[in-house]
Every structure is written in C-alpha cells, then in structure tokens.
C-alpha cells in the first residue's frame, strides 16, 4: 500500500514537473487524461465483455451541456459546469441503459453506435441551436470561483484531472473487486449461470452502463472546458472507436492501464502529426496494430507478467 502511494506520488510529480518544464506539454497531457477518463468508462463495459461503439456520445452530450449552460448563464463556475455535464450524461446513460442492457455482443455495440449517430446528426443538423458542424464555444470560466489567465487555467485543469485520475483509478478498481463488480465480470463468461444463481445480469450491466456513461460525461465536460470549443466530431463514431482502442490497449485487468494507453495514444498522435503532417492516422494505425500484436492482453499484461515473475522468484 505504501509502495503504491509512493509510486502514485512519483507519477503525479513527474507529470506536474513535465508540464512546468515544458509548457507545450500541458495540452497533450490534459487531453490524455481526458481520453483516459472516457476510456475508463469503456473499460467498465469491457469487464462485462461488452463493447460500445458509441460512447463518445456521452462526451458529446456532456460537452454540449457545458456549452449551453455557459451560454445561458455566463459566469457559471467551471466546476458547476462539470457537475452539470456529468449529471446529464449519467442520467441519459441510465435511461438509454434500460433499453441497451437487453443486448449483447455485436448488437450491443451496434445499437450504441446507432444511437450515437442519431445524436451526432441531431447536433449537426440543428444549426440554429448548436452551431452545426462549427460547434459551440465554451468561454473560459472561473474554477472554484477564481478567474485565471490561460496558463494558470490550464495548469489548474491539469491538476484537477490528475487528482481525479488517481481517485478514479482507485474507485474503479474498488468497483471491479466488489461483489457486484465481480458478478458483472461474470456476464462475460457465463451469463446463464448468473441467472441460475438468482442474479439479474441486466441489472448489473445497467449499473456498469450508468457508471461508464458518467465517466464519459466527466471526460466530455473537461474536454469542453480545456478546448474552449465543442464540435459534433467529438461524438462521431470514429471518436468512439478511438476510445475502444485506448481501452483495449490499456487492458481490462487494471484501471491504471487505460491512462497509460491514453498517454501513449495522445503522444503517438502528436509526434506523428509533427513528423508526417497529415498522415498521423497512418502512424497511429500501424502503432496500434503492432501493440495489439506484441501485447495481446494490453499494457496491463506487462504489469501482470512482472508480478508473476516476482512471485515465482519469491
């Protein structure tokens, strides 16, 4: 436990140190933490063996909630915006979840995709309200009541996101180990047996779905705040695909993996666009396929392998 806290502290300081030493790293780090948070939501479903190809919609819903609120009530504090955006996504997820938990596998994935496409289209088409494909601006709000300049604002967001990431990794990990979490994971291997133990698999999946929508909502709100702009693209199926990719890269064994994967994803993307300009997708695609090939169970498998060898030695 002490060792774990120690490592957390080191990582925490390293990220902060980097962002102070290299101010240009602030935005990619923020983005990595945002995507990591969203992908964490996808990992929750992955635990139950289900894959959603539409979860970026919860980022979109939350992002637009933030944008609408800050337009309707100028001067609303950033933290209030985040809570509101997350709340709206959570409630949407709880409602849609009622219908979606009846489906498994490809059908679950495709229905999430379909709903996300409907939402994406609505946002794009209702130009008058949403600004269409140009999106909506999110003016920089105060955070905890304090107005800041750009550098201070970004630094504060980064610190909030870092603390949040630590809290989320611990609590999602706790969720995975809880009795409900372990039961949810057995939906993946034998849902029929779960029913024969008198447990409702749908109810468990619904819980997981709500959590995942909430996490994506949280990420979406911070996405809006840090970009200062939300566009429908944030909810297009390609974004959902990227979230799935990050979560598989991270692996569903431990919640930490997904943040490492998000960091990797964001930096490969950044370096690729610096090195090859427009062709960053190509580099990203090749890197991702290579990682899947060499690390079958995601990045957390590295962690596990190390632990296993340690156990063998002792």
């Amino acid at each position: 436990m002490i060792k774990r806290l120690f490592i957390t502290g080191i990582v925490f300081l390293a990220v902060l140190g980097l962002s102070v030493a290299f101010p240009w790293m602030r935005v990619p780090l923020i983005m990595a933490l945002v995507y990591g948070t969203a992908a964490l939501g996808v990992v929750v479903l992955l635990r139950a063996g289900q894959i959603s190809f539409g979860h970026a919609m919860y980022m979109l819903i939350s992002g637009y909630t933030v944008a609408f609120l800050s337009e309707a009530f100028p001067g609303t504090d950033g933290i209030v915006l985040v809570l509101a955006g997350t709340g709206v996504s959570l409630v949407t997820g709880m409602v849609l979840g009622l219908f979606l938990v009846r489906y498994r596998g490809i059908f679950f994935g495709m229905l999430n995709l379909a709903i996300s496409m409907v939402i994406f289209t609505i946002v794009t088409k209702f130009y008058g309200m949403t600004g269409g494909s140009d999106g909506m601006r999110v003016p920089r709000p105060s955070l905890f009541g304090a107005d800041m300049d750009r550098a201070g604002y970004e630094a504060t967001l980064l610190i909030i996101l870092l603390i949040l990431a630590v809290v989320l990794v611990f609590s999602v990990q706790q969720f995975f180990r809880s009795s409900a979490g372990e039961a949810m994971a057995s939906i993946k291997t034998n849902e029929d047996r779960l029913e024969y133990l008198g447990v409702s698999a749908k109810k468990l999946l619904w819980q997981g779905y709500a959590v995942s929508a909430g996490l994506c909502g949280l990420a979406g709100a911070f996405y809006g705040l840090s970009q200062g702009l939300v566009t429908p693209e944030a909810g297009y199926w390609l974004k959902s695909g990227e979230l799935v990719f990050i979560s598989i890269l991270g692996g569903s064994a431990h919640a930490i993996g997904v943040f490492v994967a998000a960091l990797l994803f964001e930096f490969v993307k950044m370096y690729a666009s610096i090195l090859v300009g427009g062709s960053w997708q190509l580099v990203l695609g090749v890197t991702l396929i290579a990682i899947i090939y060499f690390l079958p169970d995601g990045l957390t498998s590295l962690l596990r392998k190390k632990r296993q060898t340690a156990e063998v030695r002792s």
Binding site: A180, E182, A183, A185, S186
Partner: peptide, 23 residues
C-alpha cells in the same frame, strides 16, 4: 465462471443467496 477462481465462484453464489451484491 471460467475467468474467476474456484473460491470466487462459490463466493458469488453465497453473495447471490444473501442478495447482498454491492458496489
């Protein structure tokens, strides 16, 4: 539950009987 341990399978049954699944 193939990805759970023997003990976990029994524990899941036990919790299911008591209807005490909790987060």
């Amino acid at each position: 539950f193939m990805e759970h341990t023997v003990r976990q399978c029994l524990e899941l049954s036990g919790v299911a009987r008591q209807r005490k699944l909790s987060l």
